[in-house]
Design a protein around this nucleic acid. Structure first.
Lengths: 334, 334
DNA sequence: TCAGATCGTGACATCGTTGTCAGATGCAAC
DNA sequence: GTTGCATCTGACAACGATGTCACGATCTGA
């Protein structure tokens, strides 16, 4: 900037005025400064300005998702980006990998860079460590999973309700031997989905004592193995509720290997890419990741615009999409 | 930092020394400063430090991909993030949407934030506008598509070669009536893939004059419509090469609607999620997005570490995965 | 003609941090 | 007791920008 000022033969403050479009600069001066800036390929340094600027905004936002390489997270990310772009805000994205240490590191990295707001998927037991930052006025919105040990905005699917919906769908088609294949119970949504599943069975009067509830499945392979083990047992289920998209895929692979994909019902939580093109089509309780991302970003900007209403939980609806696998009737057995 | 210094009863420079682990500070002073920093929840401001720091690094990197909501881009992004994390560098991610204006805006946003390096997928006719930044020493690596109007590192798949591989695969199974369904020709990779397709046909002695080459397909729906139109013509193809993943999906949908998915061969460029679970399985020329992302990020850090070798083009191999759709023989007709 | 308002401009302090440098302290060796 | 050296510490300037303020020039109206 000093160089631009020197070349244009004006003071640095005048350059600043021109760059920022402030009023009360003569047309000739503007022209001179613009010309000098172009010759020198001048790009203002956003961070330096920030240091002094009144609002102290970095026009930057931190987003922490399960993994940027995951369709659900990708859709959330894209929605956040689109909202942020309208506000001239850039997005830092990081992957959580369901690792509490990574959560800490990512949040620290964001805070050291003085992001204006945080959109977080978390896995650690408590997010109380964010309390000071909240007091400082940084808006924090939790997505997908609700926070613990702290109160702040959250945008989530109704996991228990969606799981119950899936379960009811199977019950209504006459299934009584259901199995639940879920993710690791440290994950809040995994617990909620299991709760929804079991409560719905309870409401239907199905004894839950002998219902196979497998947990700790985190990828396709573990889900596949768990499914095969399930069919190796004396009384295999006629219907499966898989509580996560990678788990659903693992289950599909296993059912195919076993040749049971046309006689075992399956409803998954969270949509699966190309689920409608498989045979049978995969019935799922779909979340709305775009809606989640957009709502979260809009909440951040509302807070930045001075919305001081109490922290709220926004629930983005899920919906059941039947495509075939969830409509398979129970096997008739002797 | 001034507050920490005041609370600890030391000078700001000493606090700086403690925070940055510089030597020659007494143990008691370190303890006092640490205690004060903890009480005040002090987080150093990376950007302020940067302003003065000798190397001038922001420990920040800009990544521009097709869309963060896209499996290919997600995998690239994830690989970049993993390499960056090891270097303590955070990643800004933006979506290009094949819009030249968005390219400009995103790059400007990155440069105003003084990223240490750029990893770019581009769509504008020329990236000559980056020349000043390159002279300034900012490393720029192009991914997926090569730059125009400028020389810099690039990490790409061999698109022409991969397309030729797909085409040869179909020719070897006896197909002579092939069709090419491709993306918009402003996209460099789309042109390359078309070239590979046509050149391979030429090598095989197939007259390319009447070969249907449809271009400008950018999403599932346009590809679906184009495929249906193709089968509405007098002499429909017995094999299709679809040159992009969304196009491949659109083609699959159309073939199913027409009931031709078991008698029309299909090879796609770029992998399709769950391609192995479809019926028939989707034969593709798969790229290695992880490999591309990792190579690009490593190149950035090598440049930052002082590698001044000439700009190089790194080619990440593609490989053909046969899963069924590409192995369907030509229809016997009268 | 002159007071007062308005416009255009630059000097200077400042944001939070680090590089430079000089000063203070402690200790060992003479 | 003095010198010399290593260790520890803080004052100060600087990074690139913006906020504040004051100054001179021009304009307006009585």
């Amino acid at each position: 900037m000093r160089h631009v000022a020197a070349l244009a033969g004006v003071g640095v403050k005048t350059v600043s005025r021109v760059i920022n479009g402030e009023p009360n600069v003569s047309a000739t001066t503007i022209a001179k400064v613009m010309a000098a800036a172009r010759t020198l390929d001048y790009q203002p340094d956003l961070h330096a300005g920030n240091l002094r600027r009144a609002d102290g905004r970095t026009r930057t936002l931190g987003l922490l998702v399960g993994s940027v390489d995951n369709p659900f997270a990708g859709a959330v990310h894209r929605a956040v980006e689109d909202v942020a772009l309208q506000h001239g805000v850039a997005v830092f994205a990081s992957s959580l990998d369901d690792d509490p240490d990574r959560e800490q590191e990512a949040v620290d990295a964001f805070l050291r860079r003085r992001v204006d707001g945080l959109i977080l998927t978390t896995v650690s037991e408590s997010q109380a460590y964010l309390a000071p930052e909240l007091r400082r006025g940084t808006p924090v919105v939790f997505v997908d999973r609700e926070p613990a040990g702290i109160t702040s905005d959250a945008v989530v699917s109704d996991n228990a309700d969606g799981a119950a919906l899936a379960t009811r769908h199977l019950l209504e088609r006459g299934h009584r031997r259901l199995a639940h294949l879920g993710d690791r119970p440290v994950i809040q949504t995994a617990r909620e989905r299991r709760r929804g599943f079991l409560e719905e069975l309870g409401r239907a009067g199905v004894a839950t004592r002998d219902v196979p509830v497998v947990e700790g499945l985190h990828d396709e392979e573990s889900a596949r193995a768990a499914t095969i083990a399930l069919f190796d047992s004396p009384n295999p289920p006629t219907a499966i509720f898989s509580a996560q998209n990678l788990v659903t895929i693992g289950v599909i692979r296993a059912l195919r290997e076993l040749g049971r994909h046309h006689d075992t019902a399956l409803v998954g939580f969270d949509d699966v890419p190309l689920g409608d093109l498989l045979d049978p089509g995969v019935t799922v309780v779909a979340q709305d990741p775009q809606g989640i991302g957009r709502a979260a970003a809009e909440r951040i900007f509302a807070r930045l615009d001075g919305d001081h209403s109490p922290a709220a939980r926004t629930i983005v609806p899920t919906r059941l999409i039947d495509r075939g696998s969830g409509e398979i009737p129970p096997r008739q057995e002797g």
